[in-house]
């Protein structure tokens, strides 16, 4: 993913006011040394530097503002190699949400390219997997709640429902300790390095055997399912339940 390097650069170079608006502010997530759920073969304790992450997933209304200003990302204009045929397919028109896409619902059916372009327009970037995972490990009271069975069950309960039932609006559930909403329970989220979480010839990760290995730490398997989902996607893919939020480097903030 050549684009990734460029995007990181863009994030670092960011300065000035955000176009994201006060409605979805970037909140600080303190750095930490962290046990990742990524399958073995990668280092499993990683240092994540402090960063900023948007309070909730980007909404239909926020994404509509973006495509209004960036014609090239409107449905019908975005090239297929950057966004598949179902890109924003639930909107009633290129600049119209309609009855199947409420303003306060997270935007879905967006490709990785589109998500990254959106973040770039906010002088931001997608979070890396490790950043996202660190933020997602929190509950309302703990920075690392991953060994809490109640926390885990809450995530799994969401997994257990098909996505066809309609997405919840943002910020219906309580925030975690960072003030972040809806990290779990509404949509999957793109991350910057989604395509390198699993080795390129991902055989052992993708079918028999991987489950057993990774389930040695069973508190990780809820997170592992997210890795599996991301691993099944290509950057132009969209999905009914995948959205995103943006991140920024701490030093890039005014």
């Amino acid at each position: 993913m050549l684009l990734r390097v460029a995007m990181l650069g863009a994030g670092l170079a960011w300065a000035g006011a955000a176009a994201a608006g006060e409605g979805n502010p970037f909140l600080p997530v303190a750095g930490a040394e962290f046990h990742s759920a990524l399958p073995s073969g990668r280092q499993d304790k990683v240092l994540v530097r402090g960063f900023l992450l948007q309070r909730h997933p980007v909404t239909n209304a926020e994404f509509l503002a973006f495509v209004s200003a960036h014609r090239e990302w409107q449905r019908g204009s975005a090239p297929r190699i950057l966004a598949d045929a179902d890109y924003l397919g639930h909107w009633s028109g290129p600049l119209e949400l309609g009855s199947h896409a409420a303003a306060a619902q997270p935007v879905t059916r967006v490709s990785w390219f589109a998500a990254q372009a959106y973040c770039e327009a906010q002088q931001a970037r997608l979070p890396t997997w490790y950043e996202w995972e660190l933020a997602a490990a929190a509950s309302g009271t703990q920075r690392d709640a991953r060994s809490d069975p109640a926390w885990r069950q809450q995530i799994l309960d969401w997994y257990a429902r098909p996505a066809g039932e309609g997405l919840a609006a943002i910020e219906q559930a309580a925030a975690n300790v960072y003030g972040l909403h809806d990290i779990h329970g509404v949509v999957w989220e793109w991350v910057l390095d989604f395509d390198s979480l699993l080795p390129a010839d991902a055989d052992p990760e993708r079918f028999c055997g991987s489950g057993a290995q990774n389930l040695q730490e069973k508190e990780n398997y809820a997170v592992l399912m997210r890795i599996a989902l991301l691993g099944s996607l290509r950057a132009a893919d969209t999905g009914h339940a995948i959205g995103f939020r943006c991140a920024r480097n701490v030093e890039a903030t005014p």
Binding site: A202, D203, R206, F207
Partner: peptide
């Protein structure tokens, strides 16, 4: 064959 097809059939929703 490898994975009994699993190696060739990993499929995201909508694919």
């Amino acid at each position: 064959g490898p994975g009994g097809g699993a190696a060739s059939s990993f499929t995201a929703p909508g694919h």
